[in-house]
């Protein structure tokens, strides 16, 4: 009986209209290899939950969305459940999300290496690739940026204790 109640409760939570984004940290600062900082800031505008990327020049708001077991927090798709192996998902329309590898550090912390590609875009590679752990969130990422002559990759590393997508109950 307890199992049934638990299953029903779990189903209710998973199917609830409440956003699972609340489970994850959404405020973090990163520094690029060029010394440029970017901040991710949660916000609600016109009743829509979003995360704003503030790169010091312009702001880039993106609404928080959920699809196929992931929550999109700005550029990053954060898994709602721990991935067990490399896989590829078509997510939120066109984006191809690939878990390219899973690594573990000396402390046993597991890192998931994701790459996100827009297949409709003539691109030199993923729009964004990032390394994510449940305990620290996105610890580093690389963005592809368009330029009239050439496209550039810019790399960023986390400078806060908690990155975007850190599971808030884990510590």
């Amino acid at each position: 009986m307890k199992n049934i109640i638990f299953a029903l409760l779990l189903a209710h939570i998973l199917m609830s209209s409440e956003s699972h984004a609340e489970w994850f940290n959404q405020r973090a600062n990163y520094l690029s290899t060029d010394g440029e900082s970017v901040a991710f800031i949660p916000n609600v505008i016109n009743g829509v939950r979003e995360i704003v990327l503030d790169d010091g020049i312009t702001i880039m708001p993106m609404s928080v969305k959920e699809d196929k077991g992931f929550v999109r927090l700005s550029y990053f798709y954060i898994p709602l459940a721990t991935p067990k192996s490399s896989a590829v998902w078509t997510i939120l329309g066109n984006d191809i999300l690939e878990l390219t590898k899973i690594t573990t550090d000396d402390n046993g912390e597991v890192y998931y290496h994701f790459a996100c590609t827009d297949p409709l875009l003539a691109s030199d590679g993923p729009i964004v690739s990032y390394v994510y752990s449940e305990r620290r969130g996105v610890i580093m990422f690389e963005l592809l940026t368009d330029h009239p002559v050439k496209r550039y990759n810019k790399s960023y590393v986390l400078i806060d204790d908690a990155g975007v997508g850190k599971v808030l109950s884990v510590d």
């Binding site: 312009t58 066109n94 827009d118 964004v128 009239p148």
Partner: peptide, 26 residues
Amino acid sequence: GHLIRPLHYVTNSQGGYSKLKRLDIE
């Protein structure tokens, strides 16, 4: 000008906007 998506984002093959950002937006 930052509210004009063609100045900010790159379009994909179907005319939609990609997360790919333009470097020369300013």
